[in-house]
């Protein structure tokens, strides 16, 4: 199954709900134009209101929605309206890949986020992706707080056959990270994937703990962590923007992983996040299988979203 197919399969429900309606909307619009209502100078207020409703229900938020609607304003034809929404979404979500200078060895990737977004599962899947690319990953269980988080990750590590570094519950997570990087260096691994404990972005002391992990990682290998991924649950609402902002401030997030896109939630808040904070979406999770984590591509994503429409 091709990447786009898998993406589309995972997003089908999202597509049906979100853009199926947009499709109906635009075709209704076209019908009314065809039936000789006479072309108007701008899309009617009704159409724009319906569009606003659809985008807000997709959790894009009021600001991002208004931006898209402003872009859509002035278009008469249904196809143009959709094309401009699509183009604007694409423009919002697209980003240039990060400049790849000299590749650090091992590269350290920190996975952070609030409780219950799917960090541990994401780490297992990132390891799987790395192995598929011919890399040797080390999985680091730095969630020493949540009961049985280490065991959960150990199972994933065994599944994908990756190196695994952990410590007893309650240990200092920064120390585990240091050990994992040391282990990665000694065994000449390519990438160290660090699972951290879930923390609400409002908990100052726990955000401080992340800072310590970063400092210690930087001491173990220069420039670490080379990447910090914020895991967001697609069901999250406007609070996702707060989360991204706080994690960006305190732990230098470099990218987003959007999980649980296989439900009916749309994760539209990422549009607001990329618009406001310029954070790229790196991966999306579209199912419960180990290989249901896909690298994010704005064109594929938006294409897959609109495929059923046109």
């Amino acid at each position: 199954m091709s990447l786009v197919d898998r993406l589309r399969r995972g997003l089908r429900r999202t597509t049906d709900q979100l853009f199926g309606r947009l499709d109906t909307l635009t075709s209704e619009r076209r019908r009314s134009l065809d039936s000789g209502g006479g072309p108007e100078a701008t899309a009617s207020i009704d159409t724009l209101e319906a569009l606003e409703e659809i985008l807000i229900e997709a959790d894009l938020g009021v600001v991002a929605t208004n931006r898209l609607i402003d872009a859509a304003r002035g278009h008469v034809d249904g196809r143009d309206l959709l094309a401009s929404v699509k183009g604007e979404l694409c423009r919002l979500l697209d980003f240039r890949p990060m400049p790849s200078g000299s590749v650090p060895c091992p590269k350290v990737v920190l996975v952070v986020g609030v409780n219950g977004t799917g960090k541990t599962t994401t780490v297992g899947r990132l390891a799987r992706l790395a192995i598929q690319e011919g890399q040797r990953p080390v999985i680091c269980a730095a969630d020493t707080f949540r009961a049985a988080a280490v065991e959960q990750l150990r199972v994933w590590a065994q599944h994908v056959d990756a190196e695994f570094v952990s410590a007893r519950a309650g240990a200092d997570p920064a120390a585990v990270v240091f050990d994992a990087i040391t282990c990665g260096k000694a065994r000449q691994c390519d990438i160290v994937l660090v699972d951290t404990a879930g923390r609400l972005h409002t908990q100052v002391n726990l955000m401080g703990e992340l800072d310590k992990i970063r400092r210690v990682a930087g001491r173990a290998i220069s420039g670490a962590p080379h990447e910090t991924l914020l895991v967001l649950d697609a069901t999250v609402g406007q609070n996702g923007l707060h989360q991204a902002r706080k994690f960006l401030e305190s732990s230098g997030v470099t990218g987003i992983v959007l999980t649980k896109l296989d439900g009916t939630a749309k994760g539209g808040i990422v549009a607001a996040i990329t618009a406001d904070l310029g954070l790229p979406i790196r991966y999306i999770g579209v199912g419960e299988q180990l290989d249901d984590l896909l690298p994010f591509s704005a064109t594929d994503y938006v294409d897959a979203l609109f495929r059923s429409s046109w």
Binding site: T235, T264, G268, I269
Partner: peptide, 12 residues
Amino acid sequence: ADAMTGQDAIRS
């Protein structure tokens, strides 16, 4: 239910 859930909350 997670208090941070968005518009999808009522559907699920």
